[in-house]
C-alpha cells in the first residue's frame, strides 16, 4: 500500500508470539501546560491484547491516541519521547499520519457509525485508500469484514439500510468491521463496551479474542473482569504515570504495587 508498510519488519512473524509491535519509550504528553502523561515505557506485542486500566483521567485515552496520532488533531496537545511501530518512528516528520491511521485502526467508546448505509460504512475505508479496483473486490472486502466482526448474519439482508438504525451493540460491531476493512495491523479500542449491555459486551469480547489471531489489539477498559477475560497483558496507569505492567494473570493475582492492588480490588478509582 505504501513504502512505510513495506519495510522489512512490517510482517509480523507468526512464530514469534513475543514480537513487539508497538513500543513506547519515555512518552510524555502535554495539553498546553498540563502534563497529562509522564514518561511512559510500554511494549505492545503482536497477536496479543494489551489492556490499559486505571482511574478516570489517568491518561489511558491520551496514550491510546498517541499510537495513531489522533492527538495531532487536538489543539495544544504535544507528544514527546519515542513511539515505534515495527521499529519505525510514528512521530517521524516524514511519516504521513493519514497512512499511519490506515495501519492503526481505532474503535471509539460511543459507537459512531456514519449516517450512511451499512455497506457504505464498511466500504468507506477501502474506498478512500483505493483498496478495491472493482465493485466485486469491494463487495468481497465488505463481506469478509462484516463476517469477521460477527455481524454479517444479522445484517445480510439490510446492507442498504442506514447504519445508525442498528442497535447499540450492532453499531459497535459495525464500527469494528469498519476498522477491520482497511486491514490495519493494530486496532485501538477505547472502552468499546461501555455503551453496551452484557450480551452485546460478551459478543464483542468474543470478537476481540478472535481478532487477536490477526491483529495487535490495545484496549482501554474500566471493567476489571473484562481486562481479565480478554487481555494477555495489562498496564495500570495512575495520574499520568504507568505504575505497573505485566501478564494479566499475574497482575490480577499478585499485583506488585500497592496502588494497583487498591485499584483492582476496588478500593479506589
Amino acid at each position: 500500500m505504501n513504502s512505510f508498510a513495506n519495510t522489512p519488519h512490517s510482517k509480523p512473524l507468526e512464530t514469534d508470539r513475543r514480537m513487539v509491535k508497538v513500543s513506547a519509550r519515555d512518552v510524555c504528553v502535554r495539553y498546553g501546560d498540563k502534563l497529562a502523561l509522564k514518561h511512559v515505557d510500554l511494549d505492545m506485542e503482536c497477536n496479543q491484547v494489551t489492556a490499559l486500566i486505571g482511574p478516570s483521567g489517568c491518561g489511558k485515552s491520551t496514550f491510546l491516541r498517541c499510537i495513531n496520532r489522533m492527538n495531532d488533531l487536538i489543539e495544544g496537545a504535544s507528544v514527546s519521547g519515542s513511539l515505534m511501530l515495527d521499529g519505525q518512528d510514528i512521530y517521524d516528520r516524514e511519516l504521513d499520519p493519514v497512512l499511519l491511521r490506515a495501519r492503526v485502526g481505532m474503535v471509539f467508546q460511543k459507537p459512531n457509525p456514519f449516517p450512511k448505509s451499512i455497506y457504505e460504512n464498511v466500504a468507506y475505508g477501502p474506498r478512500i485508500h483505493g483498496m478495491a479496483n472493482t465493485r466485486d473486490e469491494l463487495d468481497e472486502i465488505v463481506m469478509t469484514s462484516l463476517e469477521k466482526a460477527g455481524l454479517l448474519a444479522e445484517v445480510k439482508d439490510r446492507l442498504e439500510e442506514s447504519g445508525t438504525g442498528l442497535s447499540g451493540g450492532q453499531q459497535q460491531r459495525l464500527c469494528i468491521a469498519r476498522a477491520i476493512a482497511v486491514s490495519p495491523e493494530v486496532i485501538l479500542m477505547d472502552e468499546p463496551c461501555s455503551a453496551l449491555d452484557p450480551i452485546a459486551t460478551a459478543k464483542v469480547e468474543e470478537l476481540i479474542d478472535e481478532l487477536r489471531q490477526n491483529f495487535t489489539i490495545v484496549i482501554v477498559t474500566h471493567s476489571m473482569q473484562q481486562a481479565a477475560r480478554v487481555s494477555q497483558k495489562t498496564a495500570f496507569f495512575h495520574l499520568g504515570e504507568l505504575i505497573e505492567v505485566g501478564e494479566t494473570e499475574e497482575m490480577f493475582t499478585t499485583p506488585r504495587h500497592s496502588l494497583t492492588q487498591g485499584y483492582i480490588t476496588g478500593r479506589f478509582g
Binding site: N68, M70, L73, V98, L99, L100, R101, A102, G105, M106, F108, K110, N112, P113, F114, P115, Y124, G125, I128, H129, C175, R178, A179, V182
Partner: peptide, 20 residues
C-alpha cells in the same frame, strides 16, 4: 465522533468533510 471515526480510518480532512 463522526469526524474522529473518519480520521481514525485514515481519511484526510477534505475526504472527511466531503464524505462524512
Amino acid at each position: 465522533s463522526l469526524r474522529q471515526g473518519s480520521y481514525g480510518l485514515g481519511a484526510t480532512k477534505s475526504e472527511t468533510i466531503r464524505q462524512v
